[in-house]
Amino acid sequence: MHPLVLLALSPLLFTPLAHAVDCDNAADQATMNQCAAQQHKAADKELNALYQQITARLTANPDSKKLMVSAQRTWIAFRDAECRFSASGVAGGSAYPLIYGNCITDLTKARVETFKNYLKCQEGDLGCPVPGA
């Protein structure tokens, strides 16, 4: 292979894709922290997709949509504050990203379940704020 091609491809050797992380067998703190971040990213992606579905269903009711947006912003502030508190015992330590990340992921997964329930609302269910599909 031509040396210039190797030089051009060398940055790819240092990307996250070049070094797959085995989260099931993470043995060091840096890897555990990285895995926690990946888990949070996946949960957050699912949450955002469900949020988009909910807000789309609320388009016909701007007041409800406004309440949902406000609730979500408030929930995010709560989640972040709760997890900062939850991880405060290890603040400044190498385990902080893991403890904080796991907390964020757990609370996000719980919110995902709430959103899934909102999306299952049946027509006529007065206790459900999201109209059925």
Rank of each mutant, 00 (worst) to 15 (best):
K120S: 13
D63E: 14
Y96G: 02
P62W: 02
Y96K: 11
T74I: 05
T55W: 01
V5I: 15
G89Y: 04
T31Q: 01
K120C: 03
G124Y: 06
E113V: 02
A71P: 08
L6T: 12
L12P: 09
V21M: 07
A43L: 00
G89S: 02
Q53F: 01
A27C: 09
N33W: 03
L126H: 13
Q72W: 00
G124W: 05
R111I: 04
H40I: 00
Q52N: 15
N25Q: 14
A110K: 15
L119H: 10
Q29Y: 06
S64F: 03
A60Y: 09
A71H: 04
F78Y: 15
G92Q: 08
D125E: 15
F85Y: 14
S94L: 13
Y100M: 07
T59K: 15
W75E: 04
A81T: 15
D22C: 06
Y118P: 01
R111Q: 13
K66Q: 15
P16L: 13
Q39M: 14
A20D: 06
H2I: 08
R84Y: 09
T108V: 01
Q29V: 11
R79G: 05
P131V: 03
L6S: 12
C35S: 08
Q29W: 05
L119S: 03
Y100C: 01
L67G: 14
A30H: 10
A37Q: 02
A8M: 12
K116I: 05
S94F: 10
T15C: 09
F115N: 00
A56L: 09
S94I: 10
H40E: 09
S70M: 09
P129N: 07
A91E: 15
K45C: 04
C103W: 00
G89M: 01
Q122Y: 10
Y96T: 06
G132Q: 11
D24P: 02
P3E: 05
H19Y: 12
W75T: 03
E123G: 09
M1E: 13
G101T: 07
N61V: 07
V90L: 09
A95F: 05
L17R: 15
V69W: 06
A30P: 10
D63G: 12
Y100D: 01
D63M: 13
S10N: 11
T31K: 06
